[in-house]
Amino acid sequence: MNLKKHLKFKKQLAAQAGFSILEIIIVVAIIGTLMGVIVSRISGGTDNAKSGITDTKAYTLQSKLIQYQLANGKFPTTAQGLQSLITNPGTPIAAEEDTRDGWGNSFDYKLTNKGPLIISNGKDGQPGSNESLCFLNGKKLDCKTVEAGAPN
């Protein structure tokens, strides 16, 4: 009798082995959700890193503009732009790479009545976009406020 019970129990286990389709769908949905969260965080982290690189490069450019002013008695004009740091008579103050933001786009430059304004057009590279970053006298400011109140 014991053998019969054992064989019956084994048949029941075999019938219940594996996962139901509903369990598999739930697990796949959970894994997909987790992957989506991870990918979005990784891609967002890349933009944050490039924004940080842009901040650092802009602050470095501000210092290089001060070096230019000390050597030449004035800041470069808007027309001369950041190119004047590369082509400075005597010793170049900056390299071409120094004049590019974290996304590889060239910084824009304007000499305002408040000082040199350095502008990164952000990830999309479009002037005046919501992604633009502005730096005036070593401070990161809202571009719309800065450009409205700082004429050349």
Rank of each mutant, 00 (worst) to 15 (best):
N2D: 04
K5A: 02
H6Y: 10
L7Q: 10
L7K: 09
F9R: 09
K10F: 11
K11M: 06
L13R: 10
A14S: 15
A17G: 11
A17V: 13
E23W: 05
E23I: 06
A29G: 10
I31V: 05
I31D: 01
I31Y: 07
I31S: 03
G32T: 09
L34A: 11
V37K: 13
V39N: 11
V39P: 07
S40P: 07
I42H: 05
G44K: 13
T46W: 13
D47V: 14
D47W: 13
N48Y: 01
A49Q: 12
S51T: 08
S51C: 03
S51K: 07
I53M: 10
I53T: 02
T54M: 05
T54F: 02
D55L: 09
T56A: 15
K57A: 05
A58Q: 05
Y59D: 07
L61T: 03
L61K: 01
S63V: 08
Q67E: 15
Y68R: 00
L70R: 11
L70Y: 13
L70F: 14
A71I: 14
A71F: 15
N72H: 07
P76I: 04
P76L: 12
S84A: 11
L85R: 01
L85I: 10
T87P: 03
N88A: 12
P89F: 02
G90H: 12
P92F: 03
A94R: 04
A94G: 08
A95T: 06
A95Y: 04
A95Q: 05
E96K: 00
E96H: 00
E96A: 02
E97S: 06
T99Y: 07
D101G: 04
G104V: 12
G104E: 10
N105P: 11
F107Q: 05
F107D: 10
T112Q: 11
T112P: 03
P116F: 07
P116I: 09
I118F: 13
S120G: 15
S120H: 02
S120I: 06
N121R: 15
D124M: 13
P127I: 07
G128N: 11
S129Y: 08
N130H: 05
E131A: 14
E131Y: 02
E131T: 07
L133Q: 04
G138L: 09
K139T: 08
K139S: 08
K140C: 06
C143M: 09
T145Y: 10
E147G: 10
P151I: 01
N152C: 03
